[in-house]
Design a protein around this nucleic acid. Structure first.
Length: 369
DNA sequence: GCGGAGATGGACC
DNA sequence: CTAACGGGTCCATCTCCGC
């Protein structure tokens, strides 16, 4: 039996952090803007979070070290630090606008969302009209532009939205996935990063089309069963993932140490702050956790984690603090030669249904069972 | 063999 | 031209262990 055909929109806010900054500061208009995450080690250590299109023309892109970005745009670009709280507020309002246009809605990150509009739209033509309305509402409401992709599944919508940016609107008609993406480099396929590209090169796979017609069994040998199948399906534009809000699975905070160290005093001071932040986020969502982890990043940028699962759920700061310090001490004892560059605290393993406590009692009263 | 727990690495924004 | 280099989340895979 065939699945009902779906109409999925992917909405991607254009160079989101930079756009918010431009929106709030008219002096930035027309300039190259680079929003940076400063790590606080030395003046320019850190990475570029987002650059606007003017800055991208200079070659300044997300993820690039700030020092490299400055080499490219020394006097031409404006470098500003991130204001994450601010972007979160804009994001919440924009998501609220979009949600009203969707039958099913899924926020994927601070600046992206999927909308399933299958029920309210008859065909891609109608969906295109709806997408135009959404773009208009976001622009008039928040002064931000976005790029929208329309397709029969999340994968197609996502890849469609990237085809025209900024302020784009792109439809990939059902059956046209191959036609449009066949000759593109395999790196452009959602879910393919540098490591996968390395493997593909050895297999002689350069384009999405070549991956699409590659032997599935051979792919499974190199990537494992699940991932091999996933990559092959994706190269063929196949994706059945539903649009649905998924509960957050983990909450973490990471930060960079002033210098590489294994001094427990310096480390525990940082852990303390991170534990407080994690606790604040946890309390804000009224969540309990059962697993706590520390994350360490070595000077060579390798990640090590250590975690423990508690006998019962907890939510208090003391528990987070105590276990993160203990885990860190164990890590240092077991790795007497490792220094730390960055470290982090993470809680996970939340209760099955993420329902705020008040609502849980209310639900009990109303007796849905 | 199956699960949960713990650890690691890839990918994306 | 390369490599340098943040913070946050999700996912797959592997190993170990108890049942």
């Amino acid at each position: 039996m065939d699945k009902e055909p779906r109409i999925i929109l992917h909405v991607d806010l254009d160079s989101f952090f930079a756009s918010v900054e431009e929106r709030l500061n008219p002096e930035l208009a027309g300039k190259a803007v680079v929003v940076c995450v400063y790590s606080g080690r030395t003046g320019d250590s850190g990475a570029v979070a987002t650059s606007n299109y003017k800055a991208r023309e200079l070659g300044i892109k997300s993820g690039m070290p700030i020092s490299a970005a400055k080499r490219l745009g020394k006097d031409k670009a404006v470098f500003i630090p991130t204001r994450i709280g601010l972007y979160g507020e804009f994001s919440e309002r924009v998501m609220g606008i979009m949600k009203a246009y969707a039958d099913r809605f899924e926020q994927v990150s601070i600046d992206e969302a999927y909308l399933d509009v299958s029920d309210r739209c008859d065909g891609f033509g109608e969906a295109e009209g709806l997408a135009g309305e959404i773009k208009k509402a976001i622009l008039e409401g928040e002064g931000l532009t976005c790029s929208v992709g329309i397709g029969k599944n999340k994968l197609t919508a996502k890849m469609a939205s990237r085809l025209r940016k900024p302020d784009g609107l792109t439809i990939v008609p059902s059956g046209d996935f191959g036609k449009i993406f066949h000759d593109m480099p395999v790196k452009k396929l959602h879910g393919v990063g540098d490591k996968a590209v390395e493997v593909f090169e050895r297999l002689g796979i350069r384009t999405i089309g070549q991956l699409a017609s590659f032997d599935t069994n051979a792919l499974e040998e190199f990537f494992g069963k699940a991932r091999g199948q996933l990559l092959h399906n994706r190269a063929n534009g196949m994706d059945e993932e539903p649009v649905e809000e998924s509960d957050r699975q983990q909450i973490s905070r990471l930060a960079t140490l002033k210098e590489n160290t294994r001094d427990m005093k310096a480390i525990s001071e940082l852990l303390e702050r991170l534990a407080e932040d994690v606790h604040r986020k946890l309390a804000g969502r009224n969540l309990e956790f059962r697993t706590i982890s520390i994350i360490t990043i070595t000077p060579r940028l390798e990640t090590r984690t250590k975690s423990r699962t508690l006998g019962q759920f907890a939510a208090d700061l003391g528990t987070i603090r105590k276990h993160s310090i203990e885990l860190m001490q164990e890590f240092l004892e077991k790795n007497p030669d490792e220094e730390l560059r960055r470290c982090g605290v993470r809680v996970s393993n939340f209760p099955e249904t993420e329902v705020p406590k008040e609502q849980r009692t209310l639900g009990g009263f109303l007796g849905k069972g």
